[in-house]
């Protein structure tokens, strides 16, 4: 048996904040528990049957005022805790610009990670200390959940859409990665390691990985191979939106809605092109559902993201 641990390793900025909130909750709920247990024990001892303690009616103020008092106190405490927890979460909600982006694909029962330079790993993630890293995650089959206790972070990974999480690791070391959403037979073995390294070590490590063509490059090749460029290229005769710079922009749709062209929007537009048609265009694009797999989708989306700068230029 390994030595007794009472507190998990703390290896991300958010982990430190959550530990503080958790400790606060421990203190507050410990105090309430002591109050209730103490009252129970004292009252049970003092008013046991036949004890000499005086009995009789309760003073009037104990009836109404006390009842209203503790209702109000509990309500205020509840609102305070909501504010504290909500504020802690909001501080960490958006990843900083320029965060290192890693793609994660989950499948029964394996994690596949892929770095911007094309390096890939299975059941492992490497992250530089002190730098923000953003995970774009999707699943090929059922719902999984990417859980790193040392980061106090968890995010379900869904089939058919992207979810994301981000963190800034604070302490080099090896930490456990678990799948936290029950995903079938070998759910318990769908784990891995998250290795936090000093930034220079990370740079060396990632450069030393066998590389393939980068994601956006492969996406660009697919963009032509699948025929997307036949319509979406600037010089095309077909009336279709030009996609340079579309990523991250607000788009007006034919039904009057306005949406941001994020990863989810782009992938939806590839799989279900008739759902969110841009105003001024005919719904003539065919669905690529079944023609592209998850990995291809990620390549295409990565390519479209890489066009971000071109419109501005």
């Amino acid at each position: 048996m390994s030595p007794l641990t009472l507190w998990p390793a703390t290896a991300s900025e958010q982990a430190a904040r959550i530990d503080m909130l958790f400790t606060g909750l421990l203190v507050i709920s410990g105090a309430i528990l002591l109050l209730v247990a103490g009252l129970l024990l004292v009252l049970c001892a003092r008013y046991r049957r036949g004890s000499a303690a005086p009995r009789g009616d309760l003073p009037d103020f104990i009836r109404r005022d006390v009842e209203i008092g503790w209702t109000a106190a509990t309500l205020f405490l509840a609102l305070f805790l909501f504010w504290w927890a909500g504020a802690t979460q909001l501080r960490a909600s958006d990843p900083p610009a320029g965060a290192l982006e890693v793609h994660v694909v989950a499948k029964q029962w394996m994690w596949k990670t892929r770095y911007p330079n094309g390096a890939r790993e299975i059941n492992a993630l490497h992250a530089p200390r002190g730098e923000a890293m953003r995970l774009m995650m999707t699943s090929q089959d059922v719902i999984h959940s990417f859980f790193v206790p040392a980061f106090r972070l968890k995010q379900d990974v869904l089939p058919g859409r992207f979810t994301e999480m981000w963190f800034r690791a604070t302490k080099p070391g090896e930490y456990r990665l678990f799948c936290a959403e029950f995903c079938g037979t070998d759910h318990a073995r769908m784990g891995g390691t998250v290795t936090v390294m000093e930034p220079e070590d990370f740079a060396r490590w990632v450069a030393a990985q066998p590389q393939e063509e980068d994601l956006p490059g492969e996406g660009a090749a697919l963009f032509t191979a699948l025929g997307c460029s036949g319509c979406h290229a600037a010089a095309s005769a077909v009336h279709a939106p030009v996609l340079a710079g579309v990523y991250g922009r607000m788009v007006h749709l034919a039904d009057g809605r306005t949406v941001r062209a994020d990863e989810a929007y782009l992938r939806d537009s590839i799989l279900q092109p008739k759902r969110d048609v841009v105003v001024g265009y005919e719904p003539i694009m065919p669905s690529f559902d079944g023609l592209v797999d998850e990995a291809d989708l990620q390549r295409l989306v990565a390519y479209l993201q890489s066009l971000r700068g071109e419109a501005a230029r």
Binding site: L21, I28, S29, L33, L81, T88, A92, R152, L153, K154
Partner: peptide
């Protein structure tokens, strides 16, 4: 009382993110 108080932990979004499904 213990069950109810630990419910406060789970109602807190950031703490729940860590402890849900554990």
């Amino acid at each position: 009382t213990i069950g109810g108080l630990t419910g406060l932990f789970l109602a807190s979004v950031p703490v729940d993110i860590h402890v849900t499904d554990t």
